[in-house]
Amino acid sequence: MSQRLIPNVVSIAGVDPSGGAGILADLKSFSALGAYGCGVVAALTAQNTQAVTGVHVPPTDFLKLQIDTLFADVKIHAVKLGMLGSAEIVHTVAERLAHWQAPYVVCDPVMVAKSGDHLLAKNAVSMLIEALLPQSFMITPNLPEAGVLLEQRAPETVKEMYRAVERLREMQPLSSERWVLLKGGHLPGNEVVDLLFDGDRMIEMPAPRIETKNTHGTGCSLSSAIAALLPQAGEFRRTENAVRAARDWLRGAIATSGSLQVGSGHGPVHHFHALWK
């Protein structure tokens, strides 16, 4: 029997000191799902469970050095992209990923804060669409982020989600396997519907809504869970299976989040719910 692959997965994202989102949450997700986590810092934030009070981005030369130094030594099996704070950062990341021919790039386009504030300038969004989405094996926008990418209001019904996910898929190469996971958590109701689309198959993934205020970092954690599972063999070889397994894991992390006591705002999910008994 061959030994199970332990993939090396890197998060290129921001740092949330509270550990609920960004690289620190990604590393927890990787570890919980059997992957070895690496991290490249694309932004520093002053942040807790209640607010983001400041953002600092590293010089692009140093960001490039981080990526090149890591990829020159460590075989990377998948990449998760999170907060990339400027057009220059987006361009640098896109250029280096193309140079290293990075596999399984999962892009979580962090563009809209929970407050509704836009986190990316318009030129950075354009650079994301032009340079990064074509390289991404999967993009995982929520509804407000889909609205920004499509330059329209966010979808407000599942029917509108169908049209939006089709248009988002058109931003990726049509001749190769690429996926869009459009997350419907912002819609009202007792059921959450996500749509997974590869240009051919439209897979509707409904689930009961879990009532909790502990939703900090759910998008980061889901996209990093998918990145951790995509390169693994066996039952996760098919993309759909990896996404379903990641969603099931995240639902468990949300459902058990009340056992943590982190901050007084939107708390984090419990990444290690299956491991900490």
Rank of each mutant, 00 (worst) to 15 (best):
Q3M: 12
R4Q: 14
R4P: 12
L5V: 12
L5P: 09
I12R: 14
A21L: 03
G22I: 12
L24C: 11
L33W: 14
G34K: 15
A43Y: 00
L44K: 14
V52Y: 08
T53M: 08
V55G: 10
T60L: 15
L63D: 08
I67F: 08
I67D: 01
T69M: 09
A72F: 02
K75V: 05
H77D: 11
L81S: 13
S86K: 12
A87H: 13
H91Y: 09
A98N: 10
A98H: 12
A102W: 04
Y104S: 03
D108V: 10
P109Q: 06
K114E: 00
G116P: 04
V125K: 01
M127H: 11
M127L: 06
I129V: 15
I129R: 15
S136N: 11
T140P: 06
N142W: 03
A146G: 06
G147D: 04
G147N: 05
E151V: 10
E160T: 04
Y162A: 04
V165H: 02
V165E: 04
R169K: 10
M171V: 01
M171T: 11
L174C: 07
G184E: 07
G185V: 04
H186D: 06
L187C: 03
P188W: 02
D194K: 04
L195M: 05
F197Q: 10
D198Q: 03
D200V: 14
R201K: 14
E204S: 11
E211Y: 01
N214R: 14
N214S: 10
N214E: 00
G217W: 10
G217C: 10
C220I: 14
S221W: 15
L222F: 09
S224H: 00
I226T: 03
L229I: 13
Q232A: 11
V243H: 13
R247P: 02
G252S: 10
I254C: 07
G258A: 08
Q261M: 09
G263H: 09
V269L: 12
H273F: 15
H273A: 14
A274K: 12
W276C: 10
K277S: 05
